[in-house]
Design a protein around this nucleic acid. Structure first.
Length: 192
DNA sequence: TACGTGATCACG
DNA sequence: GTGATCACGTAA
C-alpha cells in the first residue's frame, strides 16, 4: 500500500489540493470492512473567506482545520449529518477540502447496509460519510493511517473538470460565489 | 420549494 | 443561559 497520498500532497493551498483530489480513491476500513470510492466532487475552503468555518478564528469545533494538512476534519451539520474534510496546508492556516461526492468502488455491500438504501448512497457530503462509516470520533484522524486514507490515482484532465460555485453557503456574501467547487464532468455520482 | 435537526457560537 | 445560525437530505 505505497500509493497512499503523502503528507506533502496536503501541504498547499486548499484550492489546488481540491482540484487534484478529483479522481483519487478514498478508502476506509472500519470493523474489518473495506469501503472505498473515487472522489468525484470537492469544495475548497480557505480561512480568509466567509464560507469557511475558520473565518472567525479558531474555536473548539474548527480547531482541527488549523492543524497541519493530511488529517480528517469531521463535524456535525444541521444536527444530523457528519461532513468529511481533508485538512490542507501548513499548521495554523485553517484550510480544508470538503469531500462532497464519491463513486462507489469496493465494499458496496457494507455501504448499502450502513446507508439502508440502494441508490446514490454516496452522492452528497452527508450521505457519503454514512456509507463510508465516517463518524465524529474520526475527527483529527490521520489520512495516512489504517482507518482512513486516500490513494493516489492519475490526475483528471482539466478539460474534464467542472468548476462552479459552492453549495449551501447562505450568508457567505460575495464569497459564496467563489468558483471553488470542483467535480468530474458528466459523472452521474456528482450531487445535485 | 418547505422543514426537521441539534451542536455550536456570540452575545448577555 | 439563550437565540440565531448553519458546508444537508428528503418529501411534495
Amino acid at each position: 500500500m505505497n500509493n497512499i497520498l503523502s503528507r506533502e500532497f496536503y501541504l498547499r493551498e486548499a484550492v489546488d489540493a481540491a482540484k487534484d483530489l478529483l479522481g483519487k480513491k478514498l478508502v476506509t476500513c472500519f470493523s474489518n470492512k473495506i469501503t472505498s470510492g473515487i472522489i468525484v466532487e470537492t469544495e475548497a475552503y480557505s480561512q480568509w473567506e466567509r464560507g469557511c468555518h475558520a473565518f472567525r478564528g479558531k474555536t473548539k469545533r474548527n480547531a482541527t482545520l488549523f492543524e497541519e494538512g493530511g488529517i480528517a476534519y469531521v463535524y456535525l451539520c444541521y444536527g444530523v449529518y457528519n461532513l468529511f474534510n481533508a485538512v490542507t496546508n501548513v499548521k495554523g492556516k485553517g484550510e480544508g477540502v470538503l469531500i462532497r461526492a464519491l463513486q462507489p468502488l469496493d465494499g458496496l455491500e457494507a455501504m448499502t447496509e450502513r446507508s439502508q438504501s440502494e441508490k446514490k448512497i454516496t452522492s452528497g457530503p452527508g450521505k457519503l460519510t454514512i456509507a463510508m462509516g465516517i463518524e465524529l470520533k474520526h475527527n483529527e484522524m490521520s489520512l495516512q493511517g489504517n482507518k482512513i486514507w486516500i490513494e493516489d490515482a492519475p490526475l483528471i484532465d482539466p478539460k474534464n473538470i467542472q468548476t462552479s460555485e459552492r453549495i449551501g453557503l447562505g450568508s457567505a456574501g460575495e464569497d459564496a460565489h467563489l468558483p471553488w467547487r470542483f467535480s468530474i464532468k458528466e459523472n452521474k455520482w456528482v450531487s445535485r
